[in-house]
Write a protein that binds this DNA or RNA. Structure first.
Lengths: 173, 173
DNA sequence: ACCGTCATGTAATCGGTTACATGATTCT
DNA sequence: AGAATCATGTAACCGATTACATGACGGT
């Protein structure tokens, strides 16, 4: 029940549990890949340690299978749900950094003609993937994931614009 | 001279040193704030430990002041410069994740009417800052930083579009 | 039978963040 | 003279990544 800092990873676990009702770390792993993973990756090892931390703080309950694999199943406690809701209701002025590996190279003097084509292709592929995902999205998925996907698409388009111009310049020059 | 993994932080240090010629950790801190910091933040404590790591691997040389503050001054070695150049010349297909705290809340069901206005204002402020920066940029800054700033502006515009729509929907609905 | 790939987890390492400190300037 | 901020570092902690393992299952 000690104090602990809640990180984005914590809220990802809390948020997923809120939807799933009950889940093992492996369920969480699958859930991450299926959704949030596009927006915020979590290493699978953390899906074992983080619920443990959260359980120690009383935000989740652990049930251990008696036989066989002895899997751990987690569920939110009321306290956990409150923490999640408080977080959802608290707007942030925090902004992400770009933290883009290609752009970092560019910043430090890499030749755009070298960087741009590879980045361009990677972003195009991702954009296509997102758009396919959107096309395949059933009507009943909640607004959150849908909007996040829209955001992702918007930014991928922006990257494609950016790197296209650089790749084009190199080619044309 | 042991093997070590070079992280983005490493390349930031190498890249800055390459421009500055020689610098103390505090110089690096100022250099980060002035430029790359907008794209990729580095905690100041790491600007003490990272050069040490790099020096141990032979990528940089350390000179210690004899008296007074006994500051450490670092310069690139030939090996360090080679590492930097190799990195610059190696395109990546690695892509960043969005990792946006506001979007994460949205994903997990936060109310856009709560999140959007605050995010919108923050992004507008940042956009204005970037545009001011661009306006004030002297003609002789190298292409790297200039292009990075362009990328930053593009993405901030995208965020403003995104959150505007959500804030507007909430208001209009 | 063998191979690959899910499924499922633990352990160790390490980079990065936070906290702690203190002298020097500048401002009121 | 005191407050606040800048300058300059060190130390401790911890979350996250990487590496290491092993059993089950589907296919050739």
């Amino acid at each position: 029940m000690a104090e602990l800092r809640l990180t984005p990873t914590s809220y990802i676990v809390l948020g997923l549990l809120d939807r799933w009702g009950e889940a093992t770390p492996y369920d969480l792993k699958k859930a991450v890949s299926a959704g949030v993973g596009n927006l915020w990756t979590v290493q699978h090892a953390q899906l074992y340690s983080e619920p443990e931390r959260l359980a120690a703080a009383g935000l989740m309950r652990e049930r251990r299978e008696a036989g066989g694999r002895r899997r751990r199943h987690y569920t939110l406690t009321a306290k956990g749900r409150r923490a999640l809701e408080r977080w959802q209701a608290t707007p942030t002025g925090d902004l992400t950094e770009l933290r883009d590996p290609g752009l970092l190279r560019l910043f430090f003097g890499a030749d755009p003609a070298v960087i741009a084509p590879v980045q361009l292709e990677a972003h195009r592929a991702r954009l296509a993937e997102y758009e396919a995902l959107r096309a395949a999205t059933p009507a009943d998925v909640p607004a959150g994931p849908r909007l996040s996907l829209e955001a992702g698409i918007g930014h991928e388009r922006e990257w494609v614009r950016f790197w296209s111009r650089l790749a084009g310049d190199a080619e044309g020059g």
